[in-house]
Amino acid sequence: MTEWWTYRLSDFLMFSARTYRRLFELYNAEVWPAHLAAAVLGVVLLAAAWRRHPPFAAATVGVLAVAWLWVAWAFHLQRYATINTAAPWFAAAFGLEAALLGGCALAGVRWRESTAHGARGRIGLGLLAFAVLGLPLLGATLGRPWTQAEVVGIAPDPTALATLGALLLLRDGDAAGSRGTWVGRLAWPLPILWCLISGATLWTMDAPEAPLLPLLAGLALVAARRSLSIERSSARSAG
């Protein structure tokens, strides 16, 4: 692309806000009653994250992997691609994230100890809860119809945010044991990248909630980074 510096973010928006919202409305109508299963799954994820029983760690990440795969196929490839030429690339990225999370689950991911670095745990749980319970309500609070609600496991935004929340609750770096170290770390960038892309899309559509997802992704990143620094510092002191 020549003269790329002359392009504004809005130059890349190729559909109207109305068309974007209608996409969710039609998608929701077509996959209903998958929302009921997604809602139950969301509550189970939340309960698992709250209790943090060891066997549920891999199951939580496994469920999220399936959710990313579903969103890649059912949303990005089947629907979003009809109005956005970049959607097949988004589908590929969501497929890759599904593979990374699946790898994490198979590698034996573990919860962080609940007592360690409480802020990170609280933020993780908060993000997960907001993704499951808050984001579906957000549209309605902004005056949009319920039929356009974005539900975790079905829509990309709550799925990405729930994943960041879950990743905060899991041991990172060495979270999945020595075999899963690199997989666990690689699972972070794509949800963050999606939060930025979604925020930018909403921003160009003048949606009031546009800054929300990028800010929450930033919060997750800061919380993860801070706890890693504390852990390293503790390890040095102990050494």
Binding site: L13, M14, F15, S16, T19, R22, L26, R79, T82, I83
Partner: peptide, 13 residues
Amino acid sequence: TWITFNVGNDRVA
């Protein structure tokens, strides 16, 4: 037709 006609498979649109 830029933006305005990019309505995907939405029958109403």
